[in-house]
Amino acid sequence: MRVLVTGAAGFIGMHVAQRLLAEGVQVVGLDNLNDYYDVALKNARVAELEQQSGDFYLARIDLADASGVEAVFRDGRFDRVIHLAAQAGVRYSLENPRAYVDSNLVGFCNILEGCRHHGIEHLVYASSSSVYGANTRMPFSVHDNVDHPVSLYAATKKSNELMAHTYAHLYGLPVTGLRFFTVYGPWGRPDMAPFKFTRAVLSGEPIDVYNYGNMRRDFSYIDDVTEGVLRVAEQIPGANPSFSTDAPDPASSFAPYRLYNIGNNSPVALNDFIGVIEKICGRTAQRNLMPMQPGDVEQTYADIGDLYQATGWRPTTTIEDGMASFIKWYRDFYNA
């Protein structure tokens, strides 16, 4: 088995590649190691993978480089593709919209074309809970329409789902999209709340708490998420025999196409989350209360019933245990 993992120098990509390597799978990673956040952290992740196994190779390619991506597919002879590379971040999309077009739209088209022309048996790709946008019915369900994104990042992820369906329909490419919900854990992203809040508490700096703390997030631990991704990769989708074009289900299709939420199914209030960090660190946070930021939503909450039914997957890590693991890693990695 040979698998292409895009975004292998990223947070989720690194963990997925680690698990695959541990199971004896040959992994080629694709990543441009851009400077959206600390490149040294990305290089450390790659070094960890290279140290783990000689069956890992990183192709340093930008997703928007069509000829470079095609060369990776041509030389790789992959069985499956797990596409986790993207320009991430809701707030950054307000400042640098073209980065999202290049990576998330042009780049995803290049991945789809590679899969189409090289006989990939299953493409699993990262969508996002951000696609739910202005939806307020909880928990978020993959069977609900998501036609009102509130950030360009969300719009590009919704576009990925539409593009994937088109390739499933036109070319019979089996595709599965995963809507990730606030993934955290060791080796996590510095632009996300678990990392930013931990760093601030340990250094005695204030935390920017948006919407005056009136927010809830479905924090999802990385080991749980990685297990879910690998189970999904083994479930090659087919057409839904009960799909009705009179009442179309957004989560499935007459084509080999599926969508799943992958989250903890247990939202945590932002102030409670900060309290967990305070308890583990043994320090009190300085809260800087601020209004809601453009593009943000008040709550995320994943309905994971479909994923459980398809794979038997359930998250098992509490926020207390997950954050304890993350903070231990953070202290060790940064000598904090």
Rank of each mutant, 00 (worst) to 15 (best):
R2M: 06
A9I: 07
M14L: 12
V16F: 06
A17E: 01
A17Q: 01
L20I: 07
L21W: 01
E23M: 13
G29M: 08
G29I: 06
L30D: 03
L30A: 11
N34L: 01
Y37I: 13
Y37R: 05
R45E: 04
V46M: 07
L49G: 00
E50L: 04
Q52N: 04
S53H: 10
G54S: 15
G54H: 08
L58M: 05
L58A: 06
L58W: 05
R60Q: 15
I61G: 00
D62A: 14
A64M: 09
D65Q: 04
R74H: 11
R80M: 00
H83A: 04
L84S: 01
A86S: 15
Q87D: 03
V90S: 08
Y92V: 14
Y92A: 15
S93F: 02
E95S: 14
N96D: 13
Y100V: 09
V101H: 13
V101K: 10
D102H: 07
L105G: 03
S129I: 09
Y132D: 02
T136P: 03
V142C: 15
H143A: 13
N145C: 12
D147R: 10
P149V: 07
S151H: 13
A154L: 11
A154N: 03
S159M: 14
S159A: 15
N160A: 14
H165P: 06
Y171P: 00
T176G: 06
G177V: 01
R179V: 12
G185N: 00
F195P: 00
F197P: 09
F197I: 15
A200L: 04
L202A: 04
D208N: 12
S220V: 04
S220D: 05
D223A: 08
T226M: 02
L230Q: 12
V232C: 06
E234G: 05
P237V: 03
S244H: 03
D246I: 13
D246Q: 14
P248A: 05
D249P: 06
P250K: 08
A251S: 15
S252Y: 01
S252G: 01
A255C: 05
P256L: 09
Y257L: 09
I262M: 08
I262F: 02
N264D: 09
S266A: 15
V268R: 03
N271T: 13
D272L: 07
I280L: 11
I280M: 04
C281S: 14
C281I: 02
R283M: 07
Q286F: 12
Q286P: 09
N288P: 08
P291E: 13
D296P: 05
E298C: 09
Q299D: 07
D303T: 02
L307S: 02
T311H: 06
G312S: 10
T317Y: 05
I327E: 02
I327S: 02
D332M: 11
Y334D: 08
